Simulated assay, not measured.
Amino acid sequence: MDNDVLNENTLRNLQGFAEKTAIKAGKILIEYQNKISIKVQKDVQDFATNADYASEKYILEQIRSHFPDHSILSEESGSETQSSDYRWVIDPLDGTSNYASTLMMQRYYAVQISLDYNKNVMIGVVYQPESGMMISAIKGKGFHNLNHPILHVDDITDLSKCRVYLRDAKKQMGYNNITKYLQLERHLITYSYRAQGIHEMPIGFMAIGTGSAQGYILPATKGYDIKWWDVAPHILFVEEAGGIVTDFTGAKINSDNLGKGIIASNGKIHGKLISLGKNFYSK
């Protein structure tokens, strides 16, 4: 595959593979709903179930079968490094706690598959088994779901008219970072139309890509970091919708530089958000 020209036809084929694999993995998650068991307790409210592993097992088998020379980064099994410039990034069950919940209002969960080429996200696929919604993108070709062929950010330039989401805080951030977080939150409340914390990363990114929000800020600290499999497809979605995604300094995001958080926006207020967040990583 690495000898192939990375043209649109190649990318479409890879996208089709990712979409079909995500749909099948989603069916596996549905099948496991009545027999969920926790296999690994990672944190107080962070765990992996038998469904996580079943979904991951299927996805990995498909990748190894079709693309044996490709590298893989997956949430539960970690990294498999090959000589290829391609790397599949897998979250076999994003939203495990929601999946395991009996409350329908907490039922957002998804299969996430993306493909990096030379550390650039080229393909992103997110499939939500409960709704059957497929969100998919190829770099340079826009992003879409089944109901909306092409989705775009909006063009609001006035921060005082913007809705901005903020990644929710956890005590693992540490006292000093919590203090900085509250200062950032206060700035956002003061200068935006509405600022609110949000737990579900996909919802924050999708709000930017569909124009229902204009900014999403995700601080990252030791003890409260950001994982590439959680954000890779969504970064592509925002960029393909015409938005901008950087770290808090304005640097381009890839899997190697997640230590200084993420700021996603419609592109019109990006500089203002960076300015508001500039003190978060100051000593």
Rank of each mutant, 00 (worst) to 15 (best):
M1A: 14
N7C: 13
T10H: 12
R12W: 09
N13F: 09
F17N: 03
A18E: 03
I23R: 11
G26F: 07
I28Q: 02
Y32H: 13
K35R: 14
Q41H: 10
K42M: 11
D46E: 12
A48Y: 09
Y53K: 07
L60Q: 10
I63N: 02
R64V: 01
F67C: 11
P68Y: 15
I72F: 03
E75F: 08
E76G: 04
G78H: 12
E80A: 03
S84M: 10
W88S: 03
W88A: 00
D94V: 05
N98G: 15
Q112R: 06
I113H: 02
I113P: 00
S114Q: 09
S114K: 10
L115G: 00
I135Y: 03
S136D: 03
K139I: 01
G140D: 09
F143D: 02
H152M: 11
H152V: 07
S160Y: 07
S160E: 13
K170M: 07
Q172E: 15
Y175T: 07
Y175M: 10
N176P: 01
N177R: 08
N177L: 02
I178C: 00
I178D: 00
K180E: 01
L182C: 11
L184W: 04
R186S: 14
H187E: 15
I189T: 11
M201R: 04
A207R: 03
S212G: 05
Q214D: 09
Y216T: 05
I217G: 05
K222W: 01
K227A: 09
I235E: 06
G242Q: 02
I244F: 08
I244L: 12
K252E: 12
N254C: 08
N257W: 10
G261L: 01
N266A: 06
H270L: 06
H270I: 07
K278C: 13
